[in-house]
Every structure is written in C-alpha cells, then in structure tokens.
Write a protein that binds this DNA or RNA. Structure first.
Lengths: 203, 203
DNA sequence: TGCTAAAACAAACAAACGTTTGGTTTTTAT
DNA sequence: ATAAAAACCAAACGTTTGTTTGTTTTAGCA
C-alpha cells in the first residue's frame, strides 16, 4: 500500500491574498502596468514587496489574476443584466448599461481592461486577448439577435457600440451623465436615424 | 549702448534630432511610454542614450515633442481633407477617413495619441489633454454643421463617432477593411437607421 | 500544548532606469 | 587657417526595478 496522500493544509483565514489583489487592481487601473511597482502595491496592502511572491510568482502573474477577475466580474454582471427579458433591444440596452457601469465606476478590476493593453504584458498577451475576445462574444450574440435591416454589417454595429461605450472613459465625468444614461444614448443613436431628412413623426 | 546681441549659430545640417524623434515615435507607438527606454530609442537612432539629452531635456519632453507632432500632423491631414467640399456629411466623411487612416496606418506620430494616456506622463499631462481637446474641436465643428433631427445630442454623436473610430485600432487588421472603409461604415451607421422596422425603401 | 505548515518579514541581489558630467569630434562662419 | 559652437561619445551617477534568499512569526490541528 502506498502511504495515504497528505492533504495540503488549507489556507489560513487571515491571509492577505485578496488584499494584494484589490490593491493591485486599484493601482493598475489608475496608472497602468509599467508605472506601478510591486513596492507600491505591497505598501497599499500593508506588506513588503517580497511577500507578494508568496501568493503570485511574478508581477505579470499578479496582473493576469487581476485581469481575469476583471473579465469574470463584468461578464457575470452583464449576463445577470440580460437575464430578465427576451426583447432583443432591451437585452442589448441592459447589457450596455451594465457594461458601462462597470467600466466607468463600479469595478477597479473591470477598468483595468481599459487601462492596460495586452502588449504591456508580453508573457500574458495571448491569454489577455483570449479573455477579452470571450467577453466580446457576449455582445456578438446580443447584436445577432437584433432585428436589423438587411445588409447591415453586424460586426460593424458591435464594434461601433463597444468602441463608443469604452471610449466614454475619456470624457465621462462623475456628476454629468450617468453610465446608464450614456449607454442608453449610444444605443438610441444606433437604433434611430440621426439624419434629419429621414426622421418621420408618426402621423 | 548695449552690445549687439549675438545671433545664435544655426543648427548643423547633419544633426540627428529628427532621427531621434522618428525613433521615439515608432517606439512609443508600439509599446507605450514607460515600456520604452531612452537606450532603446537611442539605439534605433544609431546613438547613445546620453546624446539624446543634447536635443531634449528629458524623456517627458521628448515624448511631448512626439505627441505635439502627432496632433499637428493628424490635424493638418484632416483640415486638408475637408477643404474640398461644403456638403456637411461629405465633409464629415472625409474627415473620418483621414482621421482613421492616420491612426491605423499612416503615422507613427498620430498613433502615439491612441497608445499613451496623458496620465502616463505626469509632467505633460495638462498639455497633452489640451492638445487633444484642440484637435477634437475640429470634429465638434463638423458635427455641428450636420442637418440632424431636433433633439439629437450632438456631443453624444461626436463622442460616439470618435470612440468607434479610435477603438478600431483594437480590431483592425491589415488586409481586411481599409481605414477608409471603416470610417465610411461608421458614418453610414450614424446616418442611417439600423433598426429594420424603421427602414423604408423609396417606392 | 506543541508541532507544522502558512504567511509574512528583512535584506539583499543584479539589472535596468533616467540623467549628468567631461571630454572629443565635426561643422561652419570668419 | 582658426576659433567657436554644435553634436556627439564614453562612462559613470544614484535610484529604482522585479525578484530571491534566509529567517521569523503565527494560525490551526493533533
């Protein structure tokens, strides 16, 4: 008989892994990957730089963990938002509101996705791109469900919508339009003609 | 009488300031501000790191010079593009094609604007934001000229358009749609209704 | 209570960073 | 031809970087 395999002792309850992750998310979101040092993250978590390496093997791995949580959380939030209805436009609107809310206000983790480019983290590049692509697939499905005019390029509609929403981080200011209002406005422009000579008021 | 002010001797003709600037633009565009070192830029220009400081007092100043040239060049290109016509939609279309072409293909300098955030360069932050705002003012005027339906939020239209175009850098691939086609497609979505039940074929 | 592994600290590492200093070459105006 | 300034090189500066190593503290189970 082989010896009974030793079960690894469970993690302590006072361990600060989550604290490190939160601090990393906050810093990466605010200043990007390269501008943030391990020492800054450690200090924000009340630790010393070397201690982080007990939980994460490298700075890039730490970042990857943050990014993964970012995608996971925004993905979950959007799925939950669209669950309530079957109307295609309403589902898209809800998804956009959730998406924009997370990216502009609610989550440091999600905002990291907009702040850091995959090329900033060479070792994790492919993984980051794959994660983001996975998330965008959600919107691909939502746009595919829409009743659009024949010949409308749905990929283009998706790219336009996500681009417009993501870019809002550059002009969004707290106190002005809320993320939800911004999302609604963008969807409305997509849905309705903007050109005056094509506008018709139902008579 | 004061002595006649000495005229500063003009710059030599073989000086490599422009070479440094080009190398810096190429590197900053590809990898951002913090990931690029002065030594890399110098090597690409066939020099040594310290030599750059003869032409630029600091890394941030070098970057600022690149960014300024980026804004200047894309601004000039767009102005030249719209000069040929008075039709508001045509002017916007031409501006968008020029804008997108510069940002996706033509100019390393212009692409730096999309790659580096003002916060990455603290000492130049305010200047960078001002430069970008100045450039966007061009599009503000173009959108203001459009014959849009009453109640359409023109700032939102502008933000949506620029966001959609700028974001294209994340999915644009050479060999697919050209920058010009992308710009046309985005303007078309703005101009025409996407929703099927509002589409009318003239009978 | 005492043992063990988890989780942290303290300190150092080599490498890379932006920048400075001082000297050398090269062009240009006189 | 000469002097002066422009343009660069060579080498080092002090600091910061991500990471490693060895040691200490501490929580949880027997």
């Amino acid at each position: 008989m082989s010896k009974p395999a030793k079960l690894p002792r469970p993690a302590r309850q006072d361990n600060r892994r989550q604290l490190v992750l939160d601090a990393a998310a906050a810093h990466f979101r605010a200043r990007g990957f390269h501008a943030v040092s391990m020492r800054e993250i450690a200090r924000a978590a009340g630790m010393i730089a070397g201690s982080i390496y007990y939980h994460f093997p490298s700075k890039e791995d730490l970042f990857l963990a943050v990014y993964e949580e970012g995608v996971r959380s925004i993905s979950a939030r959007v799925r939950e938002a669209v669950a309530g209805t079957d109307d295609p436009w309403e589902r898209l609107s809800r998804a956009c509101r959730a998406h924009t809310g997370m990216l502009l206000e609610e989550s440091d983790y999600a905002q990291v996705i907009l702040r850091v480019f995959p090329d900033d983290v060479p070792a994790a590049r492919a993984t980051l791109v794959a994660l983001r692509d996975d998330y965008e697939m959600l919107f691909r499905e939502l746009v595919d469900e829409l009743p659009l005019a024949d010949g409308v390029n749905r990929a283009m509609v998706r790219h336009m919508l996500l681009g417009a929403l993501n870019w809002a981080k550059f002009w969004y200011r707290p106190g002005g339009m809320t993320p939800g209002e911004i999302a609604d406005a963008m969807v409305a422009v997509l849905r309705n003609p903007a050109q005056s000579n094509e506008v018709r008021t139902d008579a």
